[in-house]
Design a binder for these strands. Structure first.
Length: 267
DNA sequence: ATGTCTCGACGTTCGAGA
């Protein structure tokens, strides 16, 4: 039996619950991780999620900003909501599958800080926060590097490789692709012995994006995208992945999120 | 590439965050 696992920055789950339903109808993920849900836990559209067939739901939200949620058809037993970078701002959720093909596997759903506009931690506290978050992810990855059964997904808000952005040269000073971020992300990946499950199936140098700005008049025209949304796994789990899909077409749906779903299939 | 979304709030428009 194979499992489909999806991650998607939905940019308001209440506004786009219809698009979540469309994703489920068309791609039927067994596990769905959302970021930027933007609502408090008591406002979450839980009834809609259950109607979509997810009887196992974990949410970690707050009013207005950030927020993550994990839906599953497979039971999970433990839920952790860790505190990162000295803030309680609803950016992480961990669940461990209790039965089925992924039994014992822990899934971490992250929404890493965007980091503001100015890539200088001395003058931009949001960028300093992002770098601190990245440092903590690296320390955490080091601590769990020797364990198997790990998946981490989410909007990591960094496009790590020159072929993960439309123009490496033009984005070197743009937050999401600066050297301190891309090198930090690679250090984190190595510290945790994480495998980039998406690039395992769509190798470099093929261009691959998961986000296109709302600000472009026509996102398809210049195709100025970035790959900010990721699925990483420990080597044992990565070896079981058989394919990935980045749903570029979802950027053209009615009132879309600026991010598109990324899906991995695990045997 | 200063453009477009979403949210909450002493709201009918604005500032903040992305």
């Amino acid at each position: 039996m194979s499992i489909r696992l999806a991650t998607w920055n939905i940019n308001s789950v209440r506004l786009r619950i219809g698009l979540v339903a469309k994703l489920v109808e068309e791609h039927s993920p067994d596990v769905l991780c959302l970021q930027e849900t933007k609502c408090a836990d008591d406002s979450f559209p839980m009834g809609d999620v259950r109607k979509l067939g997810y009887s196992h739901v974990a949410i970690h939200g707050q009013k207005g900003y950030h927020g993550v949620a994990t839906f599953s058809r497979l039971p999970f037993v433990t839920t952790a909501r860790e505190r990162w970078a000295d803030k309680d701002d609803a950016r992480h959720l961990a669940t461990t599958f209790a039965a089925g093909p992924l039994e014992g596997v822990t899934l971490h759903n992250f929404y890493v800080p965007a980091g503001g506009d100015e890539p200088d931690p001395a003058i931009n506290p949001k960028f300093a926060h992002k770098l601190q978050f990245l440092d903590e992810l690296t320390s955490w990855s080091t601590r769990i590097a020797d364990t198997g059964g790990r998946i981490m997904v989410g909007d990591l808000n960094i496009a790590p490789h020159p072929d993960d952005v439309w123009s490496h040269k033009q984005l070197l000073k743009v937050v999401s692709h600066t050297p301190v971020e891309t090198e930090g992300m690679e250090a984190m990946r190595q510290a945790g012995r994480w495998v980039d499950a998406v690039r395992a199936h769509v190798p470099y140098p093929e261009k691959l994006y998961s986000w296109w700005s709302y600000r472009a008049a026509d996102w398809t025209l210049a195709d100025r995208g970035r790959r900010l949304d990721h699925i990483w796994a420990s080597a044992d789990v990565a070896a079981r992945t058989t394919g990935v899909a980045v749903l570029r077409e979802a950027r053209g749906w009615q009132r879309p999120s600026d991010h598109v779903p990324v899906i991995v299939t695990i045997d």
